[in-house]
Nucleic acid binder design. Structure first.
Ligand SMILES: [Zn+2]
Ligand SMILES: [Zn+2]
Ligand SMILES: [Zn+2]
Ligand SMILES: [Zn+2]
Lengths: 165, 165
DNA sequence: GGCCATTGTGTTATATTATAACGTAACTGA
DNA sequence: TCAGTTACGTTATAATATAACACAATGGCC
């Protein structure tokens, strides 16, 4: 099997993130159009805030950003959580359970099982594709019907190891 | 490789849980003695509350149990969280990140990477042993130094599928 | 266009989960 | 018994998330 690192480690490599951002937003638009869903302006705002980086953000950080962008409005938590629920349900963002945080998906619509490498130094998160075969076989042996999986690996990314070493 | 299901699916099978409980408490005692650690009465109380079932419990549920057992005391959250931190640091319990809950470890001291199957119907949690080779290879390719992993699979266990079907 | 059903938004209040900060008690080793 | 350390207790508060309800926008239908 050839090694695929194309979209795997984007967060940990230098890349044209402006392009990356526009690309992902455009994919989100297309995906919603195809599914007859409304990517409303609030939802788009929240998505754009998450697309601004490959780092996870807490709901209240997103809330603060929203309120900075709309100084007149005084937006409250439920608005953010509802937008996040929508974006998660469509696979446009993911929740990082071990951080109570949210992050934009780097391959929206793939319906893959998301897996994350989380650097506890630089706080960047890389999203990997694929499933864990061994674990699913084991689940199968137990007659367990898988629904959703959370795979989050914490450690130190290559970049931060260099800086420290 | 032979299939090992010995301790893998204990939470999803009938077993003598009284015995299971006593066994795990005894292992915890031995482990703390070996490591010159103090399994104080508070810590033991919290562990025993978690050992009472193979279901995850929230910190405040544990707190309520503690206060039920000690009606005179009025125990406060930090006491519970400190006991939980101790028990986690020694691998006697695990945190279920996707539930903000805690569960007793079924093979304390193994230093394994814990992996969980979580039934969203009966709420039981089975702890599997082992690591995900594919994912770790990928982490390695990226020069990522793994520290800690969270693997939580949600779905419906065999038992609950039967009841529903 | 007017109507209805549905979906999305805004608002207030509150629930749930977790920690900071600080003082006291218990244990440990000399 | 004393000092150093670890664990416990207490108060207050931070951080995360949701309930409940009113109103607005949208979309299909006539
Ligand atoms: Zn990018
Ligand atoms: Zn994704
Ligand atoms: Zn048992
Ligand atoms: Zn374990």
């Amino acid at each position: 099997m050839a090694r695929k690192t194309k979209s795997v480690d984007i967060a940990f490599r230098k890349h044209d993130h402006g392009r990356c951002q526009r690309q992902l937003l455009s994919e989100a638009r297309q995906l919603c159009e195809a599914r007859k869903l409304r990517l409303t302006s609030r939802r788009r705002q929240v998505l754009e805030i998450l697309l601004a980086s490959h780092q996870p953000m807490g709901a209240y950080d997103i809330l603060a950003e929203l309120n900075r962008a709309n100084p007149a409005a005084r937006i409250a938590p439920p608005i953010v959580y509802r937008a996040l629920d929508f974006l998660m349900s469509e696979g446009l963002i993911h929740r990082i359970e071990s951080r109570n945080a949210f992050i934009s998906c780097v391959h929206p619509g793939h319906q893959c099982t998301a897996q994350f490498l989380i650097c506890r130094d630089c706080e960047q998160v890389a999203e990997l594709e694929g499933r864990d075969p061994a674990l699913l076989v084991e689940a199968d042996n137990l007659g367990f019907a898988v629904d959703h999986s959370v795979v989050e690996i914490t450690g130190i990314c290559a970049q931060c190891q260099k800086h420290a070493g």
